[in-house]
Design a protein around this nucleic acid. Structure first.
Length: 201
DNA sequence: TCTTCGATTGTCT
DNA sequence: GACAATCGAAGAA
C-alpha cells in the first residue's frame, strides 16, 4: 500500500461503468482547514450519458449538469431533497455526460473530524450513504467542478488497494424507481464488502 | 431489524 | 408547481 499516487486524468477517460468498478478500493482524500480526512471507496454507481434516463443529463445540458459535460476527473456535486449534497466523479471524454456517484466509504484518516461532523451518529453509519459522506467530508456546492487530479482543490483520489473482482457485488441503482426500463434495472451499482477490507490502511 | 414518513429547497417544465 | 441519484427519527414486529 506504499507509493500512493493521485489518479491521473486518463483514469477517468474510459467508459463510465468500467471506471465505477475501478474506483472501488481507491482512496478519496479531503484536505480541510482542520486536517485531512480520507476513506476507501466502497460503493459506486454509474450514470451513463444523455440516453441513460436515470442520469441527470437526460434533459441535456443545463446549468446544473454542465460539469458532467466537461472534462473527466472533475467533481460533480449536486443538491437534492432540499437538504442533501451528493458527490460524483465526471468520466468519459469531454462532451459526453457521464459520472460515477460515490455512495459509501470505509473511513481511514481524520476519524476525529468525521466524529465532529457526524456527532450523535453510530460510526457504522458515518459514511454509508451518498449524502452522509459529503457531510462527513465537508463536500458541498463549493466543491462542484473541482479538478480531482491534483491537490489544489483540497479534494482528490489516490491509488490504494487492489480489489479482487470476485469481491465486487453488483445490483440495480438505488432511488430511481420512477425511471423506465431498461435503465431502472441496469446493474450499475457496485460495492465491496467492507468486512473484507478491515485490516488495510 | 424492518417499515413508514416528514423534512426542505434548487432545478426544470 | 412538481419533484428529487436521501436521511434519520419513530414506531412496529
Amino acid at each position: 500500500m506504499q507509493a500512493k499516487s493521485i489518479l491521473p486524468h486518463q483514469f477517468y477517460e474510459g467508459e463510465v461503468v468500467q471506471v465505477a468498478r475501478q474506483l472501488l478500493g481507491k482512496k478519496l482524500v479531503r484536505q480541510t482547514e482542520f486536517g485531512r480526512i480520507s476513506g476507501i471507496i466502497s460503493e459506486t454507481e454509474a450514470y451513463d450519458g444523455s440516453q441513460d434516463l436515470a442520469c441527470h443529463a437526460r434533459a441535456g445540458r443545463t446549468p446544473r449538469t454542465s460539469v458532467m459535460f466537461g472534462p473527466p476527473g472533475h467533481a460533480y456535486v449536486y443538491f437534492t431533497y432540499g437538504m442533501h449534497w451528493c458527490f460524483n466523479v465526471v468520466t468519459s471524454p469531454e462532451g459526453y455526460a457521464a459520472a460515477v456517484l460515490i455512495r459509501a466509504l470505509l473511513p481511514l484518516e481524520g476519524l476525529d473530524l468525521i466524529a465532529l461532523r457526524r456527532a450523535g451518529i453510530a460510526q457504522k453509519h458515518w459514511v454509508d450513504g451518498p449524502a452522509k459522506l459529503t457531510r462527513a467530508l465537508s463536500i458541498e456546492k463549493l466543491e462542484n467542478g473541482k479538478d480531482l487530479t491534483n491537490r489544489d482543490g483540497g479534494l482528490w483520489i489516490e491509488d490504494c488497494l487492489e480489489v479482487d473482482p470476485a469481491c465486487v457485488h453488483t445490483s440495480p441503482r438505488v432511488g430511481i424507481d420512477g425511471v423506465p426500463e431498461p435503465w431502472r434495472s441496469m446493474p450499475w451499482r457496485f460495492w465491496i464488502d467492507t468486512d473484507s477490507l478491515q485490516g488495510y490502511q
